[in-house]
Structure formats: C-alpha cells, structure tokens
Design a protein around this nucleic acid. Structure first.
Lengths: 176, 176, 176, 176
DNA sequence: AATGAATGAGCTTTCATTCAT
DNA sequence: AATGAATGAAAGCTCATTCAT
C-alpha cells in the first residue's frame, strides 16, 4: 500500500490522499501514525540491506565490498530522495522508547559496515589500531552527509558519480 | 535572550517562558517561530565558528587545525546535546526557501573545513586528487555522525575522548 | 443473536463480533445502532418482567409479591452487572423521541410495581392516602439505587442478601 | 464561566459555543473535557450541600430535616433540569478511577442523608433495626427517581408539590 | 514596549454506516 | 443472505499567532 518515503512531517491526511485512500483507511492497516512511519522505515531498510547482503556473497575483497555498499546506497537513495530524510529526522526526533525501536531497524546497516571493517582488519588491509565503531561512524556519516547534501541542494547532479571519490577517501582513512 | 538550543520541538510558550518574557513579546523581535529558531542557530553557529577561527590564528599545521576543529566541536556539542539535533532536524525538515537560509547559516562551518582541506593540499600533506567538497562532507559527516550517535545512545561516554581516533581516521583519509 | 446487555458504550464492531456475525450483517436486522440497543433492552426487560409475572400467578399477598419482585431483580442484575447501566444511561441520554420509546419498553416494570401498590391498597394493607405513582417511584428508585451502588462499588457483596432489608423499608413506607 | 449543567454528551465545541468562547479557550481553564464536567459537578453539588447544611443548623427534628433536604433538592433540580442527568450519567459511565473522584464529590450528599438517618435512630424516631446505608439508598434513590421521572416526562408539573408525599413515604419507611 | 488571554486552524484518531462482492 | 474493506464526519486537543490593554 505504501511504498514511498517522505512522510516525515506529513499529516495522515496527506499520506492517505497520496495512497489514494481515506484517512480512516490508514488505521485499518496501521496502529497509529508512528506505526506507519516505522513500517515504511522497516520495509525500506530491510529491502536495501537484503540487496546488499546478496551482492556480498559473490565478493570477498573488503574494498570492493565497501564500493558495493556505497554504490547501492547511492543508487537507492538517488531514486528515493526522501528516504534519507525519513530515517534521519525520525531517528532524531523520536523519544527514548522509539529510538530503541529505530535502532533495531537500522542495525542491519550498521552490522554490514562493521562487517567490512572487521574483514579488512583481519585480512591485514586496514590498520589494527582503528576502533571499528568509530570507523563505522565515519563510513556511515560520510555516506549520509553526501546523500543529505545532495538532497538539500536539489539533487541536481549524479549521486552514483561520486562513488569512487567517496570510497577512495574512506579506504584511505582505514588503510595501512 | 537566546543562548540555548534545543527548541526544535518546543512550543513558543516554552521558549518565551525560559527566556523570561511573555509569549507575545517574542513576536516583537521575531517574525515567527521559524525566525526564532533560525536566530538561535545563527547565533550559536556564529559563536562556535568564531571561536574556532580565533584558535586557527595561532596554528599553521592543517592536521593540528583539524584536531582543533574536531575537539572544539566535540566540546561544544558535548555541553549542549540539543544543538546537533536542532541543526539536523531543521536542516532536513525545512522547505526549499528555508534550506537556502540554513545553508547560509552553516556556511562558516563548511568553509572552515574546506579551508583545512585546501591548506593541506597546498602544503603537500593531502593528496591533490581529492575533491575538497567531498572531503569536506567526509569530515563534516563523520563529526556529525559521531555526535549524533553519542546523543542518541544517551551521552554516556566522553565525546572529547574520541578526538584522537576520529582525527586519525580523517587525516589518513586525505593524506598522501 | 442478542442475549447480552452491556453494550452501552461498545462499538458496533464489538457487538457484531460477540454475536458471531460481520459488522454489515447487523444492519440487515437493525436500522442503526440505537435500534440494536433498544432491542437488547426490550428483549431483556420483556424476559424479566415475564418471569416476574409468572411468579405472581402463584402469589396473592402484595408483600410477598414485592419480595418476589425485589429478589428477582436483584438476582437478574446480580448476574448481569451491565444491564442496569444500559437502562439508566440510555434512558437518560436519549432525546425526546427516543425517551418515549424507552418509556414504552420499561412500562411493564412500572405496571408490575403499580399493580402491587394498588393491590396492597385494595387489600387494606397500604395507606389509602399514598399516591401510587409516587410510591412506584420509591420502589423503583430504591431498587435502582441499591443495584447501582452495588455495581459502582465493584459488586463485592451479595445483592440478594439485601432483599429482606430493602423490602422491609419499602413495606413500612407504604403500610398502614 | 460555566454555570450550566447539561453537557453530559455535548462536544467541547458546543460547551465552548454556549459559553461564548472559542474551543481552545476551554483548555485554558480546564485540563480536558473530563475536568470541565467534574468541575461543573463539584461546584454545583458543593453549592447545594452547603445550602442544605446551613438550613440544618436551625433545625433539630430529623423529619423536618428530611423535609428540608427533599424540598431543597426538588427546588434546585426543578430550576436546573440537566443537573440530575449530568450526575447520573457521569457517575455511571465513568471508569474506575473517575468514579472514585465522583464518589468523593457526591459524598457530602450521602453524609447529609446518613446524618438524618442516624439522628432519627438516636432520637428513637426510627427503628433501630434498619441498616443506615440501605436507608440512605432508599432516600437517595427515591429522590433521584422522582427527579428523573419528572425530567424525562418533560417537567410539566411542580416538583416541589411532591415534597410532602415523598417525605411521608420515606419517613414511614424508617419510622417505628 | 510588554503582556497574556483568546483564537481557530489543524492535527490524530474512532467508529457508525455503506456497498461491491 | 452475508461479508468486511472502505469511508469520512466528528471528536478532543495543541499551539502559533494576534491584539486589546
């Protein structure tokens, strides 16, 4: 029923209208407004991380895995400009209880990134001295900021065109 | 009147109360609520970037400049947990016209970072092949994500304690 | 389909579910929700007053009739705590037109009580000076208040255990 | 601001309109809708019981006290037809927590009646065998039912005209 | 200059009722 | 005859904004 993100601030009436149903209909499928937004989030993130995991199976090099991750995210968000906003805003506006739930939802993302970092360290490509959690934040933060900047400036250029540059910076950041 | 950030979701009545004035008084000095929040943002960011600029004057090494920037931001946000949220949420919720304004407001930040990148490239410390704007996004995104993760997990550890690790990753990312 | 009272505040969906039919089906048999509630009322009250009338046939003494009435009502309401509320609330919330209908529905009750009063007066047991309609209100009001108080305090004690005391007060009220 | 009862089922918009203010204004003075209705109740009952207590001071005979109580209630409710409904409906629709609050509010009524019963028993006017709580329910229930019947039939006759008859029944009910 | 009471548009949510199947 | 998905009116409540004082 809903396959679109971008409802972070929309009234239920707008969500319903754009879904082509009446306001009340939304409540037949979702417990409340929060539930609507969480469902969008869960579904989208689940879909993307599943996609990335599949690609990882035919890939052993951590650096190529990182390129694959960045490129998939750029492609996905490049197609759905609002998704990044939904994730960001809700993650930040939510209260304690809700944040834990969102935390659970985006965990697959985090573990994908940490997986790459650990893998690179084990294979002797990345420095043993780096803290994987901080490295994960660099990777996530850089990707996120790149996407956000792209959205906020009007999505005028190709996001995927930045892949090489971004991956290069991140890899150098962690490389021996 | 305004020295506090953290009003992203607060009603005007709370902002007024904490400022020690009546609700109506706010509208003698600001056009509307948005204007209030923008002013808070402008003032706070202006203050921080001014502070960083001052420190830059007694500093020539780009790497030490970066450490100085990261450490100042960690200290500032470490003291005011909500500032990061205000910036993020408003930057992302705003409409086209407003976003341009916010863009103007945080430009001092951006130019501080870009200044370091250019400086490092000129001094032969950083690779000539990196795109300064993308590098700026890595620096900003990493700092931002580190602060956000810290806030969202309950601000339980020392943010400034991460300075060295973060700077190390960023410098490696750009170094020759 | 309907054997339960206690729906005064229930949505149609609950009434339908408990009756084992779909929401829409209710509207094949009833004009609207009001009609459903009136039918419950009519059926329940009809059943109780029929039961009392039957017992009256083997009884000639007005005082024993009164005891029989009080005891049957206490037993019935004791088993179905919500019935009293349905009657009371609907009787009082209804508009002019509806109240007349409810009035018709509970008339059997009223006439049972008035019958006892008249009977007692004819048999020289009750004072000739009492107004039967006012006496009826005392009887009805006392029973009603006793049941209501019992429900509202959580139905913790035996309602039927009060029968003797209540009948004693009412009989003295009317006796010569 | 609000001196009228009869809002048991009214939307806030109607309460506001009849008070000559906007919907939002109601919430400047009351926490929520429940609070509005409780306030009406509290104020009205407080006023009436205060009035009755004053009259009791110049009265020692329990029977004349009862007449005074009945007559004051008939006069008051005779002037404000809706008050009885507000009390009854809310007392019955409320949930556990709220009922306790309403219980507190109407307690003054109850104690006024019980006071009369105890007084009459002590002075040897009423039977020692009656249960004061059940007697109180008879008194309250009879008064209540008389008022309700009067309201529901359209308030066409004089309520105060029934005082003597009602008091006579009640007194006989308790007398030796 | 400052107030804060009053406003009313706008929000989320419920539920009696309809109607295509 | 029966269904139950869909509707949308109507409710309670919040809060940015105004304006008489």
């Amino acid at each position: 029923m809903i396959g679109q993100a971008g409802y972070h601030n929309a009234p239920i009436s707008r969500i319903a209208r754009e879904a082509g149903v009446a306001d009340g209909t939304v409540y037949l499928y979702f417990k409340n407004k929060e539930d609507v937004l969480m469902s969008i989030l869960r579904e989208t993130i689940g879909h993307i991380s599943h996609q990335i995991k599949e690609q990882f199976e035919s890939e052993t090099d951590p650096i190529r895995k990182l390129r694959c991750l960045v490129s998939t995210l750029f492609e996905t968000f490049g197609r759905n400009k609002n998704l990044a906003l939904v994730i960001q805003i809700h993650l930040r506006q939510a209260d304690e209880a809700l944040r834990r739930e969102i935390g659970e939802i985006i965990k697959p993302y985090y573990s994908l990134i940490e997986h790459i970092v650990y893998d690179g360290m084990e294979k002797g490509l990345f420095r043993k001295t780096i803290d994987p959690r901080i490295a994960r934040r660099m990777v996530f933060g850089t990707i996120d900021e790149t996407i956000t900047a792209w959205v906020l400036t009007g999505a005028k250029y190709s996001l995927t065109g930045l892949t090489d540059q971004v991956v290069d910076l991140l890899v150098h950041g962690m490389k021996k």
